[in-house]
Design a protein around this nucleic acid. Structure first.
Lengths: 198, 198
DNA sequence: TCCATTAACGCAAATTATTTGCTTTTAGCG
DNA sequence: CGCTAAAAGCAAATAATTTGCGTTAATGGA
């Protein structure tokens, strides 16, 4: 299950990794994911299959590895001038990305892998984006809820519905934001969680 | 991707399915899930591998199929005499089951499958259990929140955290229940969601 | 009850994927 | 610049998956 951590960062090793990642993305665009195999990826990347087997072990791990890179936020949350606006806009965009076919597939890939490190990374990405919005709100002197409250109140319901079969409507998403902002000003912060082992 | 729907319900076909399901459960108990293969399951079940390939297509679909059966609730929510008590007890038990190694593996199996019908089933199971608690509350004349509010406020945060790396503490779980019950009596019901296509 | 129909199964051969032992290349470092 | 070992390539061995075809038996109608 070791993926791209603790490997030689330079030269050929990095080139191979990039080439394999590109090959995966390219193949996923042009064909059904059920037909993507490791020998196929290897051919597309110009690498021998055993290299992929030794580095990623299974297709699932490689797909998770590629997916988490694509899920990494590539821009700052839009600054609308208010905490509510920032959170609303960010949430709507997040929901749209995640509920698209590609977003759902990537999430599935990340969750399907044996190694849950990639899932943790995705959670961290989301928290970072919300933290940026929160910081901005505090700089403006606005109140903003705890990150955990936003994760529970906004992110979790959206992701749950996407994973378990219903896509949330835009009205519901706005509602979630409204409720978490309303609750924030009337409830004390909540206790923290414990990290999971396996 | 057709799993066990629209197949001949009687005799041999049903026997084979039961035998394969049992074989999967038995093997998952005695060995690492990464080492469970279709030929192995076939041998344990006393069937030929091609039968499994033709019926389930991939190991992932079979695992999802078995997992969803194990996730089906096998008893009514405990009646504690009050809506709050019922929901608290049910939630704590649900959280415990889902965050155990077996529960997480089963959820992973269900979500990893191409076919999301099994995931929808799991969602439906959960909603049914909550609906039973809600019905009981109404029979007693107690107010009870909308099922969707409980899914968003209690179930989704628990599942999100289990999937994305943190196990919720019992205090947080109680908090979620408290909040959804508090909100229920002060907020109007929310609009419904739209089903997902793919 | 018996027969016709056909879905589902079993078997085995063909194909494809995965693992493994060994050799070659090259990144990292003194 | 040369050493060392991690990572890659290659090819043979093993294992999984697909497929064609004959057999079994569930279902439905006479």
């Amino acid at each position: 299950m070791p993926a791209k951590e603790n490997l030689r960062p330079g030269g050929r090793s990095a080139r191979v990794q990039a080439s394999v990642h590109n090959a995966v993305q390219s193949l996923l665009k042009s064909m059904d994911r059920a037909d993507v195999t490791i020998p196929l990826i290897a051919a597309e990347a110009g690498v021998t299959p055993s290299t992929i087997y030794r580095r990623w072990g299974e297709l699932q791990e490689l797909l998770a590895d590629v997916a988490v890179e694509r899920l990494r936020p590539d821009m700052l949350p839009i600054d609308t001038g208010s905490a509510r606006g920032d959170l609303e806009v960010w949430t709507e965009q997040y929901c749209e990305e995640m509920s698209s076919g590609i977003g759902r597939d990537m999430m599935r890939d990340v969750l399907a892998a044996q190694d849950n490190a990639n899932a943790c990374k995705c959670d961290a990405f989301t928290r970072e984006q919300i933290a940026l919005i929160a910081d901005r709100a505090r700089d403006r002197g606005e109140y903003f809820p705890d990150i955990d409250a936003v994760m529970d109140g906004v992110v979790a319901p959206i992701i749950y519905r996407i994973l378990f079969g219903e896509m949330p409507s835009i009205e519901r998403v706005r509602d979630l934001v409204t409720n978490v902002l309303a609750a924030a000003s009337t409830r004390p912060p909540r206790p923290a969680s414990a990290p999971i082992s396996g």
